[in-house]
Design a protein around this nucleic acid. Structure first.
Lengths: 133, 133
DNA sequence: TCAGTGATGTTATAATATAACATGACTGTT
DNA sequence: AACAGTCATGTTATATTATAACATCACTGA
């Protein structure tokens, strides 16, 4: 792993939510990262390698939370709109169903995105506690 | 439907691929649309109403291809990287599996995104025809 | 007549992503 | 040692996507 990739990867591992490229840029300015391209290049490599996932719904990036993505080709992300935390899962049943949907239509899949946005359990209880008066 | 919404919706219905907001803006300049916000506002309403879907993977928008999204909460899109066409499907098995994944974790889902990018059947055969020599 | 609401229009700007070009560090060869 | 090749790096400029802030207009119901 190159210098810049290491910096970006470490930052993402320490973060508890997806970071945007510019979040990363700002956080790493004093480590020598000065331009967006330095971040985007590192991210591209990390994503290609599967160490980092891009979250399309929020234009952000997270470190992979599963060992080798659990051997699954598809990660499922649950994204809390409030605390912004991202949780990664895999599911063999969805995997195979998606697989056959593609096969049925002769579609050669390169990348799959499954993202669910909403409120995580913690943030729901936090909300009901502070309910309207 | 308001004037601007109608313009945007018609354009999307006629398009054979997802259009970006700025694609739409350019296409509708001579119909009186002059600023990005006019497009984004129309899109927001159309998406809210379910008439149009946002495709996160390509920052684009497509008219819904299913009658009332087939009654499903989740649409599955297959996006060809070459011809750029988007095909919309639903699948009850994935629906319910995703549902229970959320339930298991007490996650209150607001929106779900499933997008598969790759090569559609047509573009695969087109590629093998022009294969390397 | 007037307040309220929602669509509209306009300018400016924020946030996200890439193009184009120059340099530097390292490798393996001749 | 000199050189070509490759890949990471750095830098400036620019493209693309999205929203903020403010002003106006048209319609509705009291």
């Amino acid at each position: 792993m190159t210098q810049n990739e290491t910096l970006v990867y470490q930052l993402l591992c320490d973060a508890d939510r997806p970071l945007s490229a510019y979040n990363i840029l700002d956080a790493l300015r004093d480590k020598g990262i000065r331009a967006p391209l330095q971040v985007y290049r590192a991210l591209a490599k990390l994503v290609e390698r599967g160490a980092v996932h891009r979250i399309e719904s929020v234009n952000g990036f997270v470190a992979c939370q599963l060992h080798d993505c659990g051997g699954s080709e598809v990660s499922i992300f649950m994204l809390c709109n409030q605390c912004e935390r991202a949780n990664e899962f895999t599911d063999t049943s969805i995997d195979s169903r998606l697989q056959s949907l593609g096969n049925d239509r002769g579609f050669q899949a390169a990348h799959k995105v499954i993202e669910i946005t909403g409120l995580c359990a913690d943030c729901q209880t936090a909300q009901t506690t502070v309910q309207k008066h």
